[in-house]
Write a protein that binds this DNA or RNA. Structure first.
Ligand SMILES: [Mn+2]
Ligand SMILES: [Mn+2]
Ligand SMILES: [Mn+2]
Ligand SMILES: [Mn+2]
Lengths: 218, 218
DNA sequence: CACAATATTTAGGGTTGTCTAAAAAAACAT
DNA sequence: ATGTTTTTTTAGACAACCCTAAATATTGTG
């Protein structure tokens, strides 16, 4: 089994790979993990020795399929625990991430399999992120950022990009949650700000908000 | 907050104090933790510096009230998680200890408070052990070992001393669980073995079995 | 292309928690 | 009480992870 530190590196690299679509740089990993590039070099070497990723000096890291599977499994655990915390323990969706960061490292296949069943095998976590299956496969759905919509387009909120407490609490205040229907009433091309309709309310949102809300249009 | 290693030492010392009713020796701790006495010396120094226990060279360790409270809290978490695993995830009582050993180190007051409520604030874990309250207080009940009973006495099984898989599976085979009524039909003073009645069955048990089953007589 | 800026690695350490081997203290036995 | 056995501590080392500072490779710019 892998150590807590190793699992956290794998998870970080997994997420970064999705953005960069290719090798992940030492500095990017250091940034994401709030650690120093020299520490990253050490760890990446170790993970390469264990065949969890491939690494050539100065060329960045790329997960092997073993590494990708291991990372996906940690993410699966994280998201299942988040569902548990929200659905069963009635935590609010902005309170669960830190606790799930700890719970995701608990080692027991059986535990996760039973937890999954107990929760009704959910497909998404409380923030709308997909839960990988036990083989590490993620069902990708086509979703776009609210900021990509144009005037008069309509979408259903399916997730958040950021899930900081501040952002989630803002959404609550505006009565936006997973499943909420949003219509773009106006879009300002100068600053990307929008006026949107949510239920009976109409209000202004900045580009930053629109860039952190995922919607599905159908 | 305390490290995983520190919490495990505190827990071990807490349990040992209950047996020895006084200072706990370095060797006893080493034995219980499957570690070396020299490692124990290092750690109890550190815990003494942190005022979690008092320690004088060659004189063994004694938890301070801070240390005792911290230990009881870890045990509270362990036992609550065991209840969760058995009651909610349908684990068998012989499968939960190892997983609870990991879960007991998750750090979040709020999590435990909500978990406790979710489980209906149980007083005992699946093995009949009392769950300390949030202040670290344990409700002690008078229970005795089945081996202390004499011929014709009757008791209700309220817990197990050992909770190894082997022992718990033996109990299952004999249909003994928490709440089961047991009557001593015969007791052999030479080897401490007994013949007992459980439901409609009568059978022989060794002293070792009788010494690991707690009963309440009233 | 050369040089400056940036990214990455290497060298050398620190901390936590573990171990073995040896020294010292305490307990036991005659 | 003295010698032996057992317990406990000390000394020195190691693995996992992390850090700072310095060296080196890569990238970007004129
Ligand atoms: Mn999360
Ligand atoms: Mn999430
Ligand atoms: Mn247990
Ligand atoms: Mn238990």
């Amino acid at each position: 089994m892998y150590s807590l530190a190793e699992e956290n590196y794998l998870k970080a690299i997994y997420h970064l790979e999705q953005q960069t679509k290719g090798e992940v740089s030492t500095n990017a990993i250091a940034e994401r993990m709030s650690t120093k590039p020299s520490s990253v070099t050490d760890m990446i070497r170790k993970l390469a020795d264990k065949k969890l990723l491939s690494y050539k000096r100065y060329k960045g890291a790329l997960l092997t399929s073993d590494g990708r599977k291991t990372a996906a499994n940690v993410i699966r655990k994280h998201r299942l625990w988040e569902v548990f915390l929200v659905e069963k323990l009635n935590f609010h969706w902005d309170e669960v991430h830190e606790i799930a960061e700890q719970l995701e490292h608990i080692k027991s296949e059986e535990l996760i399999s039973r937890l999954d069943k107990f929760l009704g095998s959910p497909d998404f976590d409380p923030h709308g992120d997909p839960i990988p299956d036990k083989h590490g496969n993620v069902k990708r759905t086509e979703k776009k950022l609210l900021s990509e919509l144009n005037k008069k387009q309509r979408g259903v909120c399916v997730g958040v990009k950021e899930s900081s407490s501040d952002f989630l609490q803002y959404l609550d205040k505006k009565k936006i949650t997973i499943g909420t229907k949003v219509t773009v009433l106006g879009k300002e091309f100068f600053d990307g700000s929008m006026v949107i309709q949510v239920g009976r309310d109409q209000f202004f949102i900045s580009k930053k908000i629109a860039e952190n809300l995922y919607v599905q249009t159908n």
